[in-house]
Nucleic acid binder design. Sequence first.
DNA 1: CGGTACAAACCGTCCAGACGGTCGGCAAAT
DNA 2: ATTTGCCGACCGTCTGGACGGTTTGTACCG
Lengths: 200, 200
Amino acid sequence: MDLDRLLDAADTVVGRQGIANLTLEAVASEAHVSKGGLLHHFPTKDRLIEALVRRCADGWRTRYTAAWEETSDGPGRMARALVAMCLADDELWTEQLRQSSSAVFAALAQNPALIEPMRVVYADLHRRIAADDLPPGVGEVVVTTIDGLWLNWVLGLVQIDAAMKARLQQALTTLLAPTASARTMRTARGGAVARAGRRR
Amino acid sequence: MDLDRLLDAADTVVGRQGIANLTLEAVASEAHVSKGGLLHHFPTKDRLIEALVRRCADGWRTRYTAAWEETSDGPGRMARALVAMCLADDELWTEQLRQSSSAVFAALAQNPALIEPMRVVYADLHRRIAADDLPPGVGEVVVTTIDGLWLNWVLGLVQIDAAMKARLQQALTTLLAPTASARTMRTARGGAVARAGRRR
DNA sequence: CGGTACAAACCGTCCAGACGGTCGGCAAAT
DNA sequence: ATTTGCCGACCGTCTGGACGGTTTGTACCG
């Protein structure tokens, strides 16, 4: 029995019936396995959900790592990779990813400690962003925007269509654009931003 | 009996014992009320959580409405109000707000339909942002960044300290700054952004 | 003013169902 | 024959909710 098939079943259950109905019986039924059979592979519900979270977290790391590889070198490489991956690629926001993401909330409900793998991946991502050689805050705005987009998408709070993604991409790209000039005046990093930052 | 006291108790339970332990008994106990007494005011667990979500949603609307009132007129008023409220004000991210926010996830677990009040408030906020007279995507980046910040904060995915808020504020202010010039060339809105948007 | 009738707030017990997890068994593979 | 993978019946616990009873407040009446 492929363990991934069990995890897929769990994701499906969450996506279709909600977090509250993520029961061992439902998962077993969805995977065409008896409850005993399911518990043979995941001796505890916590272990099952932990595997769910870990798979989701690994998926994100794999994705943004691959995106980083495909992005040209230079300041903001990680941030630009994120934008390209999340806003330019139409294949990302699939129903499967939504289910997989919802499972993280199942973990939150079951046992908050189970989201630890997700925390690890986020720490890694933020470390990469911090080392991205961008003006202060710019990289963090990009990551955090993606986070917010993900939240809105998973919860269905706002509609996310191609037009909105395009607008976000445009604005974030604008934010990342001054990087080229910032690189030339690296010794005065932040000064240009502070100067441009005044308003009113 | 003040209904708010019961909701406070529910928030406290969620904050202290997690979503899974948000039971009627726990809430009743926390509020020093019998289960029967609790069910007298909220005939159903769904109703209780619905009230929780509604109170949280109303809180957000009240906050950003007040922030809008205190923000100078002009393009990006709503976006600037959000930045001032969430990144400049040190009083916002309290433990109480975190508990109240966590309750939304409890709603998600109990019955996804219960987050509807939250959806309504978000729709309103996004409508205000869309009418904010900003270059395309800029306002949405601001809101979505706040959303992401909120997510990271509630889940504890990343540490949110004053320095990070300052950096985000700086970057978002930079993003909002070009508005003044954009207003003068309103007829060509988006053109300036598109021009600045090229990279590589 | 006293008392009486009524309603609302609240209590504490009880129950039916659901859920996570255990366990003895079985059948095929080695 | 022993191990491994899986089954499915079973158990103890917990939880949401129902329900009948009790206290507290309130309006009305003699």
